[in-house]
Amino acid sequence: MAPINYSSSALDADVAAYHASIANHALDIAKTQRNQIVFRIIAQVDAAYGAFELNLSTRRAGLQTGGDAAQLGLSAAATLVGASDIKDILSATSTAFQGTRLSVDKNFFEQKTTESLVSQMRASRKNLQAQILLSLSNRDVNSYPLESAWGDVVNYYYAGTIPSALVDIAGKAGSDAVKADQTLKDAVKELTPGTPDQAKQAVTIRSEYEALNKAISSGNETSVKAARETLAKILTNAKIQFDPGASASNLLEVFKQAIIATADDNAKLQTLDAAVKSVASQ
């Protein structure tokens, strides 16, 4: 049982009094009544949440399987703490709302630590509570009637549940991912500027690769052997390590990786170009 009890019958009586004040155009009294109702519900929700948070931390730590943890975590707070009229009313207020929350993937829950979930619930509750208190303080019953406040209180209640925390974390993760993606995009290194001479070197190297590839692909034993010898010379002259017993195809792959390495490295481009030209001149 929550330490602060606000029964449904007491709530009904308060709401009836609020509506009577509205009917009598006693708007200031109605505002006071509205605020009292909301404050009492918030106190009830806070009491339930405190018990829920403690329950979550202790029970989840003791659970042996992820399935058990998911079963616990995806239950609304109302199912974990003692029965309460107000919580029952809040739970029943918006079934559709709850359904949305429950659509969260159980695996996502299992990936989150209890600390991260509690932290998110506390943050969400704090934000919503600040909004509610501000509205109660600044707005009359015309612009912020009890019905509107009730909707905010329901949101406040659900902010203290695991499904809500998971949705908020997922949303935040999505937002962070967009920012991270933008940061990554900004951080992507620009292409290494090239000169016409370097472009010619790249074409020369690549042309040699194509010729060697064609010779090896032909399957002609003499051509393959000659290509292998050429590749070995190029790699040796470029001081690129390779297995002396490797096949022609394997050496061609080593050559290809060496070519790719020249894309962003002027020194490697220069070295490989010199190695290719030295073999071609022999």
Partner: peptide, 12 residues
């Protein structure tokens, strides 16, 4: 143009 050419040739 040289930068793009080098990219195409070297990076396949």
């Amino acid at each position: 143009a040289a930068t793009l050419t080098r990219r195409e040739q070297s990076a396949f």
